[in-house]
Design a binder for these strands. Structure first.
Lengths: 164, 164
DNA sequence: CATGAAACTGGCGTGAT
DNA sequence: ATCACGCCAGTTTCATG
């Protein structure tokens, strides 16, 4: 095994060259599979010493490659089996209102500002289809909505890669 | 050891009474805040012993309330600063083709089957706007697409709750 | 490499069914 | 009496300087 002689004091975020060598890619893949891996186990899998792999993970966190760790809770188990994507087109001057409303509404699990005819894309979770009415009603005070129920998820959230 | 255990039938998912008592809610909230909390620290925060809280977390995993733990990687740090939501409307008989293509394409980080005029909603990450062309081209072989660039994310993915 | 902390295991007590 | 749950104290493994 080569000694980890990586001289990289000033590594910019845009310069992904050093940060994404083969070893770090393996670290990310293994951590993606199970973020709670112990450093020792992670070291075993990528064929490095524990301190070495710890240093790499710390570096990935500091530089923002690893933004954080998240808990994946099943909304259905929380009593919210119905999920929908809702596009919202705000009325004049209501942009900030919609964003604020999305933040405040507990049924909203995600909100993106997007280009195109609609300005926002929201992911919404409710106990039953009927319960969507109350949510939509409030957004309709400030704009127009288009709803699509999520029937299945062929690709669960995963780490993207550049094309081959 | 992989963290998510195999789901088991005994406890119905809709029977949230036992699974979502106050203690478990606190466990979920704390874990959502930091999924890498040690069991000891978690136990301290919710006011229980470590083995007790370990048992609760294990149960939440077994019953599928906790679906897993995910690594949040910044696509920009991976050289993919441009993100877009793309709706895809498959041509006749191309439903399965689109789903398979979404799975295969590394730029796709997420794919939902939805109701409405379009059948699929994809999240796509590319190094630059121009690179979207090649991706769209392949999907356009089997259907129509509508793209919206993600400008910002007012609400980062979070755990939804039922309305008050 | 050494030390302190945390993860696991088995055994025991308690309270509800 | 059984079962479900939590605590305690043992050993082993891990994190960190």
């Amino acid at each position: 095994m080569p000694s980890p002689r990586t001289p990289r004091p000033p590594v910019g975020l845009q310069n992904g060259k050093d940060l994404l060598d083969a070893a770090n890619r393996r670290v990310l893949d293994e951590l993606a599979g199970d973020p709670r891996l112990s450093m020792s186990e992670l070291a075993r899998r990528v064929g490095m010493s524990a301190p070495a792999v710890r240093e790499r993970v710390a570096r990935l966190e500091e530089t923002g490659v690893i933004r954080g760790y998240r808990l994946d809770v099943d909304p259905a188990a929380l009593g919210l089996p119905v999920a929908a994507w809702v596009r919202v087109r705000p009325g004049p001057g209501q942009l900030a209102t919609i964003a604020e409303l999305a933040r405040r509404r507990p049924e909203v699990s995600e909100c993106h500002r997007v280009s195109g005819d609609d300005c926002f894309l929201l992911k919404i979770h409710v106990p039953a289809i009927q319960a969507l009415e109350a949510v939509l009603d409030e957004f309709l005070l400030y704009g127009q909505t288009t709803s699509s129920f999520i029937v299945s998820t062929p690709v669960e959230p995963r780490i993207p890669e550049a094309a081959d």
